[in-house]
Design a protein around this nucleic acid. Structure first.
Lengths: 332, 332
DNA sequence: CTGTTAGCGCATTCAT
DNA sequence: ATGAATGCGCTAACAG
């Protein structure tokens, strides 16, 4: 789109002229070859090579109402929990000819609404969002846009459209049950302050039947914040014997800080993370965690969008991918 | 873009009608208010709210030749080294009204060429690529497209257009010099097999003046691969006393494996990483590494693209952001 | 300050 | 199997 270019890009018009056919025949030869004769296709293909033609997807999308773009909305790209999902989503979409436009909400509802509006203006064939959209106005707007929407990484009875996720309250409950089964009394929580981490904390506390001392940390969570969280929790309860963390990064930090204080894991302090980050299985001691299949979420979201675009019926618009507790050395 | 929608989205035509002005006046009131009277602007704004109008950026882009999109190409999204760059790039672009379209090359030159072609078809206002484009055909095509291109995370005398990066050969050389200064004799390398990691290895070996036993690992590098790499290096040289790694993840893995074997760090084995991942400063022992300012690369790339789009002169089309060795406990 | 005219590049009608 | 006309929604140019 740079006017400084000495070459004006070839258009379909140039291709048609070079091939000696009409514009629409050239168009069909490229996008719907089955209705065009072999000879014509060959001529058009040759003309494409000769002219270096690259289809203008803006123009095609404007006319056909299929932009071949999907919007992907994340709080922030570097939140490692979502990366495998976004990576797989991008790859699966690309395999079907779709590209992902990235939007970051920066954990800010206002930014989210702005980003969603902009995205709608790009006429994407689908929108995939990490988490549930909170603002009712944004939900209405998305619904009215008619664009297929997949909310992910959470669960709801009333999604905007489609959903691939799991229940964070249940995760918290399951981890709470696990902690109960271990008989730990002096328990602490190191938690991010985002909506989903809070849901897990709620579930955890409900199962334990009481409030649990909590160190909240700002997003994005990190090893450093985990170290600080343990320091804070130990001030609240010097007899602390187990910590439930909202990410494996935090759990790792808790473990490092514990080691720095001469505490043994899990004998003096048990630690559980969330997300099953790849390093957790390989450090010493290995980190107990909650496994969620991030790539599968991306794969299923792509599938839903693509099927919907093709007009195929969606058997299951809300998919619960579940989770599973992975016990390793840090709690064993 | 879903035909199932019962509502047809409002167009600028509807807004103009509701506001009682002509189409172009409505357009100007929204995109160039300074040439429109206050009263008209107010009327149009009200009409926008009433109709729920969202501008169709496909149509706008087609006509104005400014798509307000920038393509971002990475080998794979989950390569953590590039994440801060892509995150900052996305944020800076969004602040100026641009969105990022994501492309993954999967470390495959053929895929890269395909991805670049598709991206050109989307008429982006700029393309930001991690690394240098290898294929000459792709380079020519990009150059001819006239689209502003920023290659990043590497250095070259002859970039396609603009560049923000640093010399991997120099990084390797600097680390090699550091290793020499420490007097270590039994040295090993744990390295990814991508182009940039190999360049660093080349620089490292050149400074040492000899070949160094190397364990290559596939991308993406990880803690687990670091553990395996140390195992492999120890088989090649049981007296190993220092390892140079192509990422902090690998370095971390080497350290974990060393600990598992009862080796003390740095007394028995010194380890140096690359990238200055945030965990490296906070684990015990902390990881010596090479710091590169990833966010700054993203910021500068965004700046270059935006300035170019605005027709402003580019003072420095090739920017070397440099690097610096960060000495921590793992080599101290 | 506002409006009219004319496309951007392509794909969906229709026709042949 | 191929072609001619029409318009997607918007904005750059010119007019008034």
């Amino acid at each position: 789109m740079n006017t400084a270019s000495p070459f004006k890009a070839a258009t379909l018009h140039d291709v048609a002229k070079a091939a000696g056919v009409s514009l629409i025949t050239a168009s069909r030869a490229l996008s719907n070859p089955s209705v065009v004769s072999e000879k014509t296709i060959t001529k058009v293909r040759a003309a494409v090579d000769a002219t270096g033609y690259i289809p203008n997807l803006l123009a095609g999308g404007l006319k056909s109402k299929r932009s071949l773009m999907v919007a992907g909305i994340v709080p922030a790209l570097a939140v490692s929990q979502f990366l495998p999902t976004v990576q797989t989503l991008t790859r699966e979409l690309a395999a079907s000819g779709y590209q992902l436009i990235l939007g970051q909400t920066e954990y800010d509802a206002e930014v989210e609404e702005r980003v969603l509006n902009t995205m709608i203006g790009r006429q994407p064939d689908g929108i995939v969002i990490t988490g549930l959209v909170q603002s009712q106005r944004a939900r209405d707007r998305l619904q009215r846009s008619g664009i297929p929407v997949v909310e992910t990484w959470d669960l709801s009875d009333r999604p905007i459209d489609m959903l691939v996720g799991f229940s964070h309250v249940k995760v918290g409950g399951a981890v709470g049950g696990y902690f109960l089964s271990k008989g730990w009394k002096h328990i602490g929580i190191a938690s991010g302050n985002d909506h989903r981490a809070r849901m897990r904390r709620d579930g955890f506390q409900t199962t334990l039947g009481r409030e649990v001392p909590t160190a909240f940390v700002p997003a994005p969570s990190s090893l450093e914040l985990g170290r600080r969280a343990l320091t804070e929790l130990l001030m609240q309860d010097p007899k602390l014997e187990a910590v439930c963390c909202s990410s494996d990064q935090l759990a790792h930090g808790v473990m490092v800080e514990a080691a720095a204080r001469g505490m043994r894991i899990p004998e003096d302090l048990a630690v559980c993370g969330f997300g099953n980050a790849d390093f957790g299985a390989h450090i010493l001691p290995s980190i107990s965690t909650v496994h969620v299949d991030g790539p599968e979420i991306g794969r299923l979201a792509a599938r839903l969008i693509i099927d919907r675009c093709r007009g195929e019926p969606i058997a299951q618009p809300v998919i619960d991918v579940g989770f599973r507790i992975v016990e390793r050395q840090s709690t064993a």
